[in-house]
Design a protein around this nucleic acid. Sequence first.
DNA 1: CCCTTGACTATCT
DNA 2: GAGATAGCCAAGG
Length: 114
Amino acid sequence: MSAFQEKFDQAIWQVVTNIKSGRVMSYGEVARMAGYPRHARMVSRAMSRSPIALPWHRVVRSNRTLAFEVDSDAYIKQANLLKKEGVDIIKGKVIPTKTDDDTSLDELLWGMPK
DNA sequence: CCCTTGACTATCT
DNA sequence: GAGATAGCCAAGG
């Protein structure tokens, strides 16, 4: 396992873990938040490798569509998990709950002890 | 070392 | 809005 992977995975997992229920983030946003601005594509890889249960279903594309093929099992699974959290998907686009506060994840993440 | 592969994105037509 | 195109970058063959 490369040194890159270890650090990258940790950063990604921390960010994804802190996505609040009812909200979603794009791969690019997660990557930026983790400190790797151009690694949107690596985010999926990191999540697949995660040993712990991550709220991976809260990570979607920048255009707010799910990253899987529409009729795939994974797509349906993700859609169900989101719906369970009150997130609707209309015309293929996820609609985060509007009742959530605006507390930034930055504060939450940066404020945490290393 | 070269080439292909993505759970990606931004920008044009 | 749907396609096409071009960046992106680690990983694996």
